[in-house]
Design a protein around this nucleic acid. Structure first.
Length: 427
RNA sequence: GUGGCCUUAGCUCAACAGGCAGAGCAGCGGAUUGUGGAUCCGCAGGUUAUGGGUUCGACCCCCAUAGGCCACCCCA
C-alpha cells in the first residue's frame, strides 16, 4: 500500500477523467458566451462570516459541512473553503460596487467546492461545480432564462433525462406566516412523530415536508402547501416563471415539498435530477432566487438568482460514455533504429512541433520493433522512422493504420503529415 | 454526524476447514543486432490496508484505526 494517498473524500482526476471534465467545462464556457454571461473567479476560501451570514448559520452546510481552516495566529480572521459559489460572488458584487454596472450582472464560475461530509460515490469533500448567477433583475423572465440555460447544459452534455423540479418558497412577506401555520399543523400531530422529526419541527419545519420517513407520509399529504399560501406578488411571480418555461418548451414538475438547504433562497427554488432518481439524494444541480442575499452581505437591496450544477454528478450519470473521450493521440511518433540517435529523434520532433503538428518522440533505447509497437498502441497514425538514410536526408514514413510505408525526404515530412492530417479530419 | 457491508500486485480477481501468497491484463526484456497490434518465453511487481491480539502456525478468527461503498441526514 502506498504511504500517501489522496485525502478522504478527494480523488485524483487521471487524464481520461480530467478530459471528461474539460469537455463539460467547454460546454459551460460556450453556453456562458451564448447567453451573455461572463466568467468570474473568486477565492477558494472566504471569511467564515461570508458563508455564515449568506448561507445561514443553522443550515447543514454551515453547521456540519463547512471546511474550516485553522486560522493563523497572527491573523484575526477565521477562514473556510467555499462550500458553494454564490456567497463569494455576492460578496464580490458588493465589494466591487457592481450595482454601478449595467444590471443585471450575469456571471458564471467553475471550480472546486468543499464540504466536509461523509464521502460516497458522487459525493466528495472536494467536488466541481459550474455555477451561473444573474444579479440585479427581479423579474420572472430571468428565472426562466437561467433555468432553461441549466436544462440546455444537461442536454448538450448528453444527459437527455434530466428532470426539473420546481417550487416557490415565498418571501419575507408570506413565508413566516406559512412556517407558523406549518408548525402549528405538525404540532397537533406530534404524538405520532419520531423523535428526529420532532426536533426538526423547531429547527427547520420546512424540512418535514420532504422527509422520507414513512411515518410522516400521511401528515405530509395533508399538510398546508406553500404554493397555496403565497402572497399575491410571489404567486404572480411563480405563475410567470412557469409560463415562461412553458413558452420555452422547458419541461418541469411543480414539487410543493421542494425546499432548499440554504437560507438565502426566496421565491423560485429548483433542482435537477435524473428521471426516475428524483427520490434519491443525488441531485444533478439546483438553484434559486436570493433576493435578500446581497443586502445580508452589506450591499443595498438587490435581487438575484443562481444555479449550480455538479460536474462530478453529471459525469457519474453519463457513465462510461463520459470517459471514452479519445485521448491526445499523436499524429506521428518519431522512432529510430539507432539507440544512440535519440538526439536526432528529438530534433526532428521539435521541428515538426514548431510546424504545429502533434508529435511524440520515442526517446527510449528500445529496439525499433518495440518503438513501433508502442506508437501503435498510443494511437499514432504515422511513424517517422529515422535510419541510415537520414545521412542523405531521407526518412521512412509509415502509415501505422494502413500498414504501408514509403521513403520521403525529411524536408517533406511536415507537409506530408499536415496533408494526411487534414484529409483524415475532413474525410 | 448515525447504521451496515467491504479492503490480497498498477487493474480485475484466485488461494480447501487456520498449513509454502497465485493467475489474467497492464509494464519491461528476449525469441527477430532496421519494422507494430499476433504467438511463445522470461523479468519485475506483496509487510495480504495499518496496528495489536488468539494460535505450534493467520490472507483466513477477534479488537482497534484508516480508506472505499451502501442506506440515512443533506445536498452538487
Amino acid at each position: 500500500m502506498p504511504t500517501f494517498r489522496a485525502p478522504r473524500g478527494t480523488r485524483d482526476l487521471l487524464p481520461a477523467e480530467r478530459a471528461a471534465f474539460t469537455k463539460l467545462e467547454s460546454i459551460g464556457r460556450d453556453l456562458g458566451r451564448r447567453y451573455g454571461y461572463r466568467q468570474i473567479e473568486t477565492p477558494l476560501f472566504e471569511q467564515v462570516a461570508v458563508f455564515e451570514r449568506g448561507i445561514g448559520e443553522v443550515t447543514d452546510v454551515i453547521e456540519k459541512e463547512l471546511f474550516r481552516l485553522a486560522a493563523r495566529s497572527d491573523e484575526g480572521e477565521a477562514w473556510a473553503l467555499r462550500p458553494e459559489a454564490t456567497a463569494g460572488i455576492a460578496r464580490a458584487y458588493v465589494q466591487h460596487g457592481m450595482h454601478t454596472w449595467p444590471q443585471p450582472v450575469k456571471v458564471w464560475l467553475t471550480g472546486p467546492m468543499f464540504r466536509y461530509d461523509r464521502p460516497q460515490a458522487g459525493r466528495y469533500r472536494q467536488f466541481w461545480q459550474w455555477d451561473v448567477e444573474a444579479i440585479g433583475d427581479p423579474g420572472p423572465a430571468v428565472d426562466a432564462e437561467l433555468i432553461e440555460l441549466g436544462a440546455r447544459f444537461y442536454r448538450e452534455a448528453g444527459l437527455d433525462d434530466a428532470l426539473l423540479l420546481i417550487n416557490s418558497i415565498g418571501d419575507a412577506v408570506c413565508r413566516p406566516a406559512y412556517v407558523a401555520e406549518l408548525k402549528a399543523y405538525f404540532r397537533e400531530h406530534i404524538a405520532g412523530m419520531p423523535e428526529v422529526e420532532r426536533r426538526r419541527l423547531e429547527s427547520n419545519p420546512l424540512r418535514l415536508l420532504d422527509s422520507k420517513d414513512p411515518a410522516l407520509a400521511v401528515l405530509q399529504a395533508r399538510a398546508p402547501r406553500i404554493t397555496d399560501r403565497l402572497c399575491p406578488a410571489c404567486a404572480e411571480h411563480f405563475a410567470a416563471v412557469l409560463g415562461h418555461l412553458d413558452a420555452l418548451g422547458v419541461g418541469y414538475r411543480v414539487e410543493p415539498a421542494l425546499v432548499r438547504g440554504l437560507d438565502y433562497y426566496t421565491r423560485t427554488a429548483f433542482e435537477f435530477y435524473r428521471a426516475g432518481a428524483e427520490g434519491q439524494q443525488q441531485a444533478l444541480g439546483g438553484g434559486g432566487r436570493y433576493d435578500g442575499l446581497i443586502e445580508l452581505l452589506g450591499g443595498r437591496p438587490t435581487p438575484g438568482i443562481g444555479f449550480a450544477l455538479g460536474l462530478d454528478r453529471v459525469i457519474l450519470a453519463l457513465g462510461d460514455s463520459a470517459s471514452q473521450e479519445e485521448g491526445a493521440s499523436p499524429l506521428a511518433v518519431i522512432v529510430g533504429a539507432e539507440p544512440a540517435a535519440t538526439a536526432e529523434r528529438l530534433r526532428v520532433a521539435t521541428d515538426l512541433r514548431g510546424e504545429g503538428l502533434v508529435v511524440r518522440a520515442d526517446l527510449s533505447a528500445r529496439k525499433l520493433g518495440r518503438q513501433l509497437e508502442s506508437a501503435a498502441r498510443d494511437g499514432a497514425h504515422f511513424a517517422v522512422i529515422l535510419g541510415d538514410e537520414l545521412a542523405a536526408g531521407q526518412v521512412q514514413l509509415k502509415d501505422l493504420q494502413a500498414g504501408t510505408q514509403r521513403p520521403l525526404p525529411l524536408a517533406d515530412v511536415a507537409r506530408e503529415l499536415r496533408r494526411a492530417d487534414a484529409s483524415h479530419h475532413h474525410g
